[in-house]
Amino acid sequence: MSDPVLVLRNVTRVHGVGETRVHALRGVSLTVSAGELVAVMGPSGSGKTTLLTLAGGLDAPTEGEVMVEGTVLGDLSRKALAGLRRRSLGYVFQDLNLIPALTAAENVMLPRELDGVPARTARDEAAAALEQVGIAVLADRFPDDMSGGQQQRVAIARALIGDRRLVLADEPTGALDSETGEAVLRLLRARCDAGAAGILVTHEARHAGWADRVVFLRDGVVADQTRPPDVVESLLADNTST
């Protein structure tokens, strides 16, 4: 495997204490390498979102460790963790969290500005990121003046700006129609093909289809996962030919 960007090692997360203790994850190990898109599927309560928040350093494991590009997140100070999150990680959440008072370009460049990048550079990077998601012309629009699909693209551009190495997506297609949703998945796929590592949490198998590997979570453990493409392709070759 090429270089691992994200490593979860024997990660357990327990919420609550005593009688209300809930094991959201139990001893989960997962490695996502550069260029790889991994989809995580499972029923609600299986630990999908917990896994994503741990991978993104938004929450800390009860046991085990989370490493991003070789750095154990638990070893970092709050400030260092926040810096790493801004530089290495991109998030696309179900609710887009776009700031209504900022234009598309301003929303996208915000994480870079927070990181101390000069405004001019941040603006250029934002333009490039918006270009990449196909809405360069909407740079000066406000979120309220855009369709749901366009807003989603802004959120993705924000997750991609500044060459993030790890992209975390939680149901990124939200309520988009199937074709716009597919365009979003294509973007995520392209980003991983260009060298990022990606995790996609979804309950839609059609979206998981874009991943290199699909991990099935159940009651906080990895219940199963798909085999590598070449293995599957040779099995399918008997039924479907191109």
């Binding site: 198998a205 998981a208 289809g209 699909v214 199963d224 798909t226 493409p229 599957v232 392709e233 399918l236």
Partner: peptide
Amino acid sequence: QAQRTATVEALQAY
């Protein structure tokens, strides 16, 4: 689960 994995694998191939 075995079927789900197999079906998702086919879906990935498609």
